[in-house]
Design a protein around this nucleic acid. Structure first.
Lengths: 188, 188
DNA sequence: TGCAATAGTTTCGACTCGCTACTATTAAGG
DNA sequence: CCTTAATAGTAGCGAGTCGAAACTATTGCA
């Protein structure tokens, strides 16, 4: 017994971290959920800013995501943009006010920066493994950067998405995409 | 630039982890907050089970903690025990039903167990560093195990707490204490 | 053409959350 | 001793989260 790292211990640490982070994350007029949604919208590409994508990313339902987005819109931090092509879908864009709110570094980041470099590196690496394992477990999407996707193709003018069949501007390669699918592993 | 592990990346990973964990943690009739409170009560010693201690541990206010505890009591998972010594304070004890609910391993633990041992070990170590840094940042209590406290003294019949001046049963050394204060570091 | 799938919304009930009173009770100082 | 002052817990408020279910528009398919 006394297994050096049992899953119970890790569970406890994650719960504690969750509570501490949430407390640290109240950002002015926003609660943690709203802040997370706003942050996502600011990093997602134009094909990934609909309520259902936010719901996927935040691991909640469309209904809940819809309410959170309405709350952000009421505060003029995001605006609705209805699609011409598909009249059912909506894309939310972050406003100037919304971007301004995201500027200031959070308390969490301040603390992370006090960690020794090697601890930060191993934290990032092991967190990534865990998040990927959890996503795999529940069949969730990875929401990676567009440019690291197997459907992405660099071109002279920026890039091209083979899946959606659209050309991309240079800055779009570093935005999150709900269709993201990692590069295929090189099988041994 | 492109600092191998910038704090923004870690922040993103933690946010994702938080959402995934919360979704995984809905345990039958309990939401994540109630589950966290119940778990804490089951692991805390008899001096650390008051609403204010739960509030400290969950990083929230006494008012919120009070409501969460009332919700658990309504479901007969914990019971109120008023103190004789100090008529203001209350101690909550976990009932049989409450303990039963904690028995089944969570989805999170299942996933953690799929991680390679070295990843799990580095995850635990770096998470611990981060949690301690966050606690230090906001002046929170560590809530460590009674037996690892600087006020703890092993005795023939179990242990003795020099701070509270009470003798302890053997099993109490491995419970959480709100007064926990780590062993002093050996200064070089 | 007609029915099923999809996108988003609304409503419901239970609950969290920070806050601000407010009530007991206990502690400290003149 | 007796009056503050601190402490422990609670109630109520308003905004919001959360899952679930019911409900519109669309769009896709056969």
């Amino acid at each position: 017994m006394n297994n050096s790292t049992d899953s119970q211990t890790i569970h406890d640490l994650i719960d504690r971290l969750t509570r501490l982070t949430a407390a640290e994350e109240w950002n002015g007029p926003l609660n943690p959920s709203q802040f997370a949604a706003l942050t996502y919208l600011a990093r997602a590409n134009r094909f990934s800013r609909a309520p259902s994508h936010v719901a996927d990313y935040l691991v909640t339902t469309r209904g809940t995501a819809s309410q959170t987005l309405k709350a952000l819109a009421r505060k003029d931090l995001i605006t609705e943009a209805r699609s011409e092509a598909d009249k059912r879908s909506i894309r939310y864009d972050v406003t100037k006010d919304g971007l301004a709110l995201l500027k200031d570094a959070s308390g969490l980041e301040t603390v992370v920066e006090t960690l020794p470099a090697d601890v930060a590196a191993s934290l990032a690496a092991s967190l990534k493994s865990l998040v990927l394992a959890l996503l795999h477990h529940r069949g969730g999407r990875s929401f990676g950067l567009c440019g690291t996707c197997r459907h992405h193709e660099p071109t002279a003018t920026g890039g091209h998405c083979r899946l959606l069949g659209v050309s991309l501007k240079p800055h779009e390669a570093s935005q999150l995409c709900h269709e993201h699918s990692p590069e295929l592993e090189t099988h041994p």
